[in-house]
């Protein structure tokens, strides 16, 4: 009997790194599953359901239809909107990662050298992050104002430089929207990468110093490879957040001039609240989610796996 029990124990060893798994895990997982299902999955399922109807904000009686899918995916504006979304996302993500990394490196380096004021610097960068998107858009709208008294253009004039059509020129308006988004989102990247930088083993840098490695070589062959996981996770999260951004844009440019800065999230919003087209908005929401998931999966494919670096 004792021998059989001992055999059974050795036959099903507990998983590494965890305690014993209950024989019936479902009751333990049920609260979490219910919570996730209710608050995360149900809205997605509902959006999917609405996408296959002719639902409108003006009429609660919706019938099954695939018309909304055809209308939205065949919309002549969708191409421009997707192009805007791609430019906005790429510019914002690259900007946030590069600036976030630069500031994180600066702060870590400053802390290692005992430089004063690093905490203040971190806090200052974080201050931008806690500002709501709408307020961020309004702040930058005032800064980018092309009126003779506009803040940035006045500074340019003082420096003897010509003023810039920040918001009225279709090309510049997208750049302005990216700048406003990068300004706000950099803090998030900085914090993630700062934490990752702090966890890099100092002995690696000490060994590199013994080998007389240059700063660039230390960055290229130690910092970047060690940060790979954090950079990719950071990229996934920022891509998703940026794709969903519309608050900064609606208060900064409203999507204009024309459609110059109308991204997919704003187009979805306009479809629901101008056209009252709930079904069309749901189709676009699902499209937005599909793009987010595809991009996240693409980036995740490069994530280091356990046992492989």
């Amino acid at each position: 009997m004792i021998a059989r029990a001992a055999r059974r124990r050795t036959a099903t060893p507990p998983p590494a790194g965890g305690g014993p798994v209950p024989a019936r895990p479902l009751p333990w997982l049920l609260p979490v599953l219910l919570f996730v299902g209710l608050f995360y999955l149900w809205p997605i399922v509902d959006a999917l359901r609405l996408a296959f109807t002719d639902a409108s904000l003006l009429d609660r009686d919706a019938a099954f239809s695939t018309e909304a899918i055809g209308a939205m995916l065949g919309s002549p504006a969708l191409g421009t909107v997707l192009r805007n979304t791609a430019i906005f996302t790429l510019g914002s993500v690259v900007g946030q990662i590069l600036l976030g990394l630069a500031i994180a490196l600066l702060v870590v380096r400053g802390e290692r050298n005992g430089l004063r004021g690093m905490l203040v610097m971190r806090t200052l960068v974080l201050a931008a992050w806690v500002i709501p998107g709408i307020a961020n858009g309004i702040i930058w709208q005032m800064l980018f104002s092309e009126a003779p008294f506009g803040a940035i253009n006045s500074a340019l004039r003082l420096a003897g430089l010509p003023p810039v059509a920040w918001l009225s020129d279709p090309g510049n308006a997208m750049m302005s929207a990216i700048i406003a988004t990068v300004w706000q989102g950099t803090a998030y990247s900085m914090i993630l990468l700062y934490a990752a930088l702090r966890s890099i083993d100092d002995t690696l840098y000490e060994a590199a110093a013994v080998d007389a490695a240059t700063p660039w070589e230390r960055f290229r062959f130690i910092t970047l490879p060690e940060l790979r996981g954090a950079l990719l996770v950071n990229a996934i999260l920022i891509v998703i957040m940026t794709l969903n951004t519309f608050d900064v844009i609606i208060s900064l440019t409203g999507g204009g001039p024309g459609r110059a800065t109308e991204v997919l999230a704003l187009f979805t919003y306009n479809t629901v609240f101008y056209n009252f087209d709930l079904a069309g908005g749901s189709v676009l929401s699902i499209l937005l989610m599909a793009i987010s998931l595809a991009l996240a999966a693409l980036v995740a494919a490069f994530l280091p796996r356990a046992g492989r670096r």
């Binding site: 279709p170 409203g254 009252f276």
Partner: peptide, 21 residues
């Protein structure tokens, strides 16, 4: 009920024309 969308399109149209797009 179509007025909000007409207005939306007029805003887009005027922005594109006045910005030379």
């Amino acid at each position: 009920a179509i007025y909000p969308e007409i207005s939306n399109q007029i805003q887009i149209l005027l922005g594109e024309v006045m910005s030379g797009a």
